[in-house]
């Protein structure tokens, strides 16, 4: 009777024991042990982390290039303009009238008039050929109306340009947006190839992490056997390996962030020299908190999932 009572209280104790806090403690301990295990073989751990970092760096850089390109393009698109070169016979008052008419057009936000005299002055100032221009008997440059469309997207700019061809006194319509369209197409290509590359590389990273974890499991076969013999589930046996995979991924993500910074700092100084020539104060972007977090957490998730895929079947196959 006494012994039965003892047994029962013992069983109750056992059932109560795995509470939430002990579950957290158990995870913390496993996490720490996995971490210490990685530190025991620093060279091979770093090699794995480095490979993951390089893998993550490639799509990250491509993404950076495409997002920077598209922000540049947004700026350019916003400033899309249509130049209307006017008939040289048209008088100043006729030009003013045309301009006022155009200002009533809903598709147009602004029209600037550059008279032929102004154009010649600008030309002289810009080229330093004032002497030559002074020798000209009459001004060869036409007056220009610079139209800023309401809607900057290439399609509607093209429609507007076609329509403006019918405006009185207009001799030639010129849209300087074709190169923007080409650049947009290039940027889209970069973005798409970045996405494809990301998929391929993520698959590759799964294999790399999986392979590393598989080796680790093979090295600790006996331990897994013993764990199972004393009642450990497959999930319990897999847990340290999942942590290891996650550490590899997180480490790879962090290293990739650092490498990305290094690349961009090097690249940025060269880029600033170039941009100075264009008097632009454009700055590279794509290093906000979000992109860093995406790289690090994405790396961690890839590592964890890679370890999960690799470990589950293999651990289940170790049968004591």
């Amino acid at each position: 009777m006494k012994s039965e009572k003892l047994l029962r209280s013992r069983n109750n104790q056992r059932r109560d024991s795995p509470s939430l806090s002990s579950w957290v403690q158990m995870h913390r301990r496993t996490a720490l042990q996995s971490w210490q295990r990685l530190l025991k073989t620093p060279a091979s751990s770093f090699a794995t982390i480095f490979v993951i970092a390089v893998g993550l760096l490639l799509p990250a850089l491509l993404y950076g290039v495409s997002s920077n390109l598209s922000s540049v393009l947004d700026n350019l698109n916003g400033s899309a303009q249509i130049s209307l070169f006017m008939d040289r016979g048209s008088t100043a008052s006729e030009l003013r009238l045309v301009r006022e008419d155009l200002l009533f057009d809903d598709a147009i936000s602004n029209v600037e008039l550059i008279s032929s005299e102004q154009a010649l002055e600008e030309f002289s100032a810009a080229t330093g050929l004032s002497e030559i221009s002074q020798q000209l008997s009459d001004n060869p440059l036409p007056a220009t109306l610079v139209v800023t469309p309401m809607d900057a997207d290439p399609q509607s700019v093209a429609t507007l340009a076609a329509r403006l061809g019918a405006t009185p006194h207009v001799e030639l319509v010129q849209v300087d947006s074709q190169w923007i369209q080409r650049l947009t197409a290039v940027s889209r290509l970069v973005a798409v190839s970045g996405q494809i590359l990301t998929i391929v590389i993520v698959l590759g990273l799964f294999f790399i992490v999986g392979n590393t974890i598989r080796l680790a499991i093979e090295n600790r076969r006996d331990e897994i056997r013993v764990v199972k013999l004393v009642g450990g589930t497959d999930a319990f046996a897999a847990r340290p390996f999942l942590y290891a995979g996650m550490y590899y991924g997180l480490g790879g993500g962090m290293l990739a962030t650092m490498l990305q910074f290094a690349v961009v700092i090097g690249f940025n100084s060269a880029l600033q020299d170039l941009l100075q020539l264009y008097e632009s104060n454009f700055h590279l972007q794509g290093f906000g908190f979000t992109s860093i977090a995406a790289l690090v957490l994405g790396g961690g998730a890839i590592g964890w999932l890679g370890a999960l895929l690799a470990s589950f079947r293999q651990i289940a196959a170790i049968d004591p």
């Binding site: 024991s17 795995p18 002990s22 579950w23 301990r29 004393v230 319990f236």
Partner: peptide, 10 residues
């Protein structure tokens, strides 16, 4: 080890 598996507090 068996206690760890059963989730005992340290």
């Amino acid at each position: 080890l068996p206690l760890e598996i059963c989730g005992y507090r340290p």
